[in-house]
């Protein structure tokens, strides 16, 4: 593969039952490309956490995944409320999720720490009241 492949997804913000469809699609595409299963799992977990976060906190957004010879880059962009304190948000167990989100099995304050744990690079750009863009990279 000499030219990078790009996949774009729009994430619906009001349908929790469909959250994860984009991550599932990316996982399938990476499998078809014959990538190593450990790398695919890392990408799938990190993207799924991000996708769930978008639905829980930001009323959806968009995800762009680019696959090159050297890495897989995920850019998750939303127009949500922004993250007031990134340092706090990166702490395991810190969560601002609503109680009903917890009853669905999420909001334990593991999302962002997990995204960092499963990727080789992660960068968060956030502006209060405007939105958040998270860029993650997994090396191949």
């Amino acid at each position: 593969m000499s030219e990078a492949l790009t996949f774009n997804y729009k994430i619906d913000g009001d349908d929790f039952t469909r959250a994860g469809e984009a991550s599932s699609s990316v996982k399938n595409k990476l499998k078809q490309l014959g990538l190593d299963s450990d790398i695919i799992r890392k990408v799938a977990i990190a993207m799924y956490e991000g996708e769930i976060n978008m639905v829980i906190h930001a009323d959806g957004g968009s995800i762009t995944v680019t696959v090159s010879d050297s890495d897989i880059t995920m850019v998750l962009a939303d127009h949500g409320p922004g993250i007031p304190d990134i340092e706090k948000a990166m702490q395991e167990g810190y969560s601002t999720a609503r109680p009903e989100v917890r009853s669905l099995g999420f909001g334990a304050g593991m999302g962002l720490p997990n995204m960092k744990k499963y990727t080789d690079e992660m960068h968060i750009d956030t502006v209060i009241g405007q939105g958040t863009t998270i860029t993650m990279k997994v090396h191949i």
Partner: peptide
Amino acid sequence: NPQVVRTAEM
């Protein structure tokens, strides 16, 4: 809920 299956898949 459906996210159980999604989580297992990932």
